[in-house]
Amino acid sequence: MYLKLENVRKEYDGKVAVDNLSLDIPKGIIFGIIGPNGAGKTTTIRMIMNIIAPDAGRVIFDGREIDDSFKNHVGYLPEERGLYKKLTLSEVMVYMAELKGTPPAVTRPLLDHWLSKMDLLDYKFRKVEDLSKGMQQKLQFITTILHDPEIIILDELFSGLDPINMELIKNVLLDLKRAGKTILFSTHVMEQAEKLCDNICMISRGKKVIDGSLSSVKAQFGKNTVQINIEGDGAFIKDLPGVKQMTEFNNYIELYLAPGADPSEILKTVVGRVKVNRFEVVEPSLYKIFIDMAKADPTESQRDQGGDHV
C-alpha cells in the first residue's frame, strides 16, 4: 500500500477524535473519506499531514513512517483556507511552492499554464484581495498542486465552490489521477464522493464504519433500492408489503426493500394507483449506506454534535 494508516488514535481532553483507524490508500486512485461534521475527518487528515501527532499508531508513506520531508510530496488544501491578501497572485504562487521546496526558477514557467487553465491569467500581477471568493478558491487550488505533489489531500474541497468551478477542478483532478497522482479527499456530501471516488472510507465518531472500493461497498448492500417518479400522492407506497423504508426527495422517491422482496410486485401495485414516469432498481446511494451503518452503530444515537475539534 502506498499511504497507510495503522491503528491511528487521537484524543483531545479525554474525547476521542479518531479511534483506532486504519486505512490503506493505493497509489493512483481517488480516495474519499466520508462522514458527517465532527466525525474526525479533519483530525485524520491533519495526522496524515503530520500537522498533529497521533497519540498511538503510525502513518506510513511508501514504506516509511512519515516525517516533515513527506510534506514536500503532498499538496494540501485544508478546510480552513486562505492566502496572503496583500501579495500578487504570482508572488503567492511562487512563495507557496517555495515552502514546498520548489525553487522559484522551477515554479515561474508553470504559472501561466495553471492561471490560464483556471481563467485567472489576467490577474497574474493583481493582488489576491482583488479576487472574488470563487477566484480565490481556484487560486488556492493551484497553490495546492503547483509543486507537482505525488499525493493531493483536499479537505472539504467543494464547499463554497459554484458548479462551474467545481467542474473545472473536478476535471483537473481526473487529469491528475490519469497522471498517476493519488488524491485523497474528505467530504460530508455523499453525492460528491459518489461521483469522484474509486475507493471510500466512511467514518463516524472517529471510527471506521466501512471501507473499500465504491463498487464493493455498494455490492455489500445489494440491489435493494428502487427509485420511482410518479404523478400524484405517493404516501401509500411506504405501507406496501416488502417496502422497508421510503425517502421522498424533491423529484423522486427512493424505496428500500426488505430482503427477498420482489420489485416487480411493487411496480404492479403502484401502477394500479398512480401514474408512474420512471421505475428503476438502483444500487444504494452512499447516503443511504451511511445512514444504515450509522444506525447499526449502537453508540451513534448518543453522538454529540460539534465542530471539528482542532
Binding site: 499531514m49 516533515d68 485544508p78 480552513e80 486562505g82 492566502l83 515552502l99
Partner: peptide, 13 residues
C-alpha cells in the same frame, strides 16, 4: 485570521 496558517504548517513545521 486569514486562515493561511494550516496551509503553511502543511509545508513547514
Amino acid at each position: 485570521n486569514s486562515r493561511i496558517m494550516e496551509v503553511l504548517v502543511s509545508s513547514v513545521s
